[in-house]
Design a protein around this nucleic acid. Structure first.
Lengths: 185, 185
DNA sequence: ACCTGAACACCGTTCAAGT
DNA sequence: ACCTGAACACCGTTCAAGT
């Protein structure tokens, strides 16, 4: 019962994952969805609009993922692990969502803020339990997110592979930050 | 005395800054450089190769920027501030350098490693002065770089603007991390 | 060695029809 | 309301020549 619109988004997502935004040609999208090469224009104003729909659907998944907040920092750690796993598995979607244009879509901004609210809640709970330093929970959450986001972006682009002797992963860097934050006097 | 190759890179960089990679058409590059639309093929194997040359030149600038290491963490802070200022001013170059393909170029990897060595040195000096926690300096440097990189990427894509009450900048997040690291017991 | 102009295949987008 | 096929302008790349 998938609508044509859904089929188009599915096809476009597959092409995006396989070869990046350049590989998302409306002709191939139509071919994969079983329609003509410009049927997409009946559902999306432009290719940019189709890509935005992919990004919106992707962010929507985070809203539906439920989470529990523990008194320690383990919930925060697990959220960041999930984030890193998702970005590593779907780098093209990750790059797409954080493209320069994404801020222009109110739908994307709303979904991102809603997803961040869960992280802020987990940070607040960990602060109450003494597992994270005090201070504006929004601000602490943003710091942790910045580390996870930066680490995984460096990893994806190959700038994290051989730093130092061994291999340092994005997860390692999140662990380092949380470990340091837990020891702040 | 600029060579045709340099003129092509200059023209391509201007187009990149103005409209992103899609705006870098070989026809416009040639027009801006005063040559035909496919003269670039005598200097670069492909458009991708031309973009890689832009990235390499950009990373080369960092190698030539000298820096002093102070006993406190101020040198590290200034390096990250420079990084943020550069990425904010030239977001398209920033996004280009950290594209998924950048790891395939040995020239780019070398330049990035060389630039990072300066940061590691400053981190080591700050550790000796007690301004940063002990541990593998490469690892601590990577953590700090991840924060700066992630924060500025979030800022560029508009995901940092209204977090919490006021405005949190990428510089603020670097300050937060350094402040926390200075208080680790 | 470096450059030009024509040509080819491909892509985003538009438009006039079709049901 | 949704889809099709032809058409247009544009782009990356190749090729045969030109100096």
């Amino acid at each position: 019962m998938a609508s044509t619109r859904d089929l188009l988004i599915q096809a476009a997502t597959r092409l995006l994952d396989d070869g990046g935004p350049a590989a998302v040609t409306l002709r191939d999208v139509g071919r994969l969805a079983g329609v003509s090469h410009n049927a997409p224009y009946k559902h999306f104003a432009s290719k940019q609009d189709l890509l935005a729909a992919i990004a919106a659907r992707e962010l929507g998944r985070w809203d539906r993922s439920r989470s529990v907040s523990n008194a320690d920092e383990s919930s925060v750690r697990q959220m960041m692990y999930s984030y890193i796993r998702w970005a590593t598995r779907y780098p093209a979607r990750f790059k797409l969502i954080f493209g320069p244009w994404s801020s222009e879509s109110a739908e994307l901004a709303d979904a991102a803020n809603h997803a961040r609210a869960a992280l802020v809640g987990a940070v607040g709970t960990a602060q109450d339990g003494g597992a994270l330093p005090s201070g504006d929970p929004e601000r602490v959450a943003t710091l942790i997110l910045a580390v996870a986001h930066g680490a995984v972006d460096l990893a994806i682009s190959g700038h994290l592979s051989r730093s130092g002797k061994g291999h340092t992963s994005a997860e390692d860097l999140v662990d380092d930050l949380l470990h340091h934050l837990a020891r702040v006097r």
